[in-house]
């Protein structure tokens, strides 16, 4: 992928192409220091997929200790962008989460409800 890793504050994010899918990995702490950069990173991922389509984006947040509401908004904005695509071109967003960080289950429930069929949640428990 032509997207540079995001390393800012206590957050690291990276993306890699894997055949027909894209895998994003997040680790650290997503707080107010990085919300704009995170939203920009997700925007670049979306733009990249518009250029070179994928059927699914795997979002691995198992190493993400915390995400605040302004970073959470970045994911909401991204989901809205996907929803506005032609239905034939839309891609799924599959979150990989862990019970080690209980906020993930609660926040991903809200994201799943928001994104409907676009969202798939997997947990390690």
């Amino acid at each position: 992928m032509n997207i540079p890793d995001l390393v800012s504050g206590e957050l690291t994010a990276s993306g890699a192409r894997d055949g027909d899918s894209v895998r994003l990995s997040f680790s650290g702490n997503a707080d107010a220091r990085v919300d704009r950069e995170l939203e920009a990173f997700l925007g670049k991922v979306h733009a990249e997929i518009l250029r070179d389509p994928a059927s699914e984006v795997i979002v691995d947040i198992r190493a993400l200790e915390f995400m605040n509401s302004s970073c959470f908004k970045g994911f909401i904005t991204w989901i809205v962008q996907v929803r506005r695509m032609d239905p034939k071109s839309r891609y799924r967003i599959r979150f990989l989460s862990t019970s080690k960080h209980p906020w993930q289950k609660r926040s991903l429930h809200a994201i799943s409800y928001f994104g409907g069929e676009l969202i798939v949640i997997e947990s390690d428990n």
């Binding site: 509401s69 302004s70 908004k73």
Partner: peptide, 17 residues
């Protein structure tokens, strides 16, 4: 959350979250 997607500044979600 729907409103937040249209906001330019902040999320407006913290308290509701």
């Amino acid at each position: 959350m729907h409103e937040a997607a249209e906001r330019v500044d902040g999320s407006g979600l913290g308290i509701a979250r």
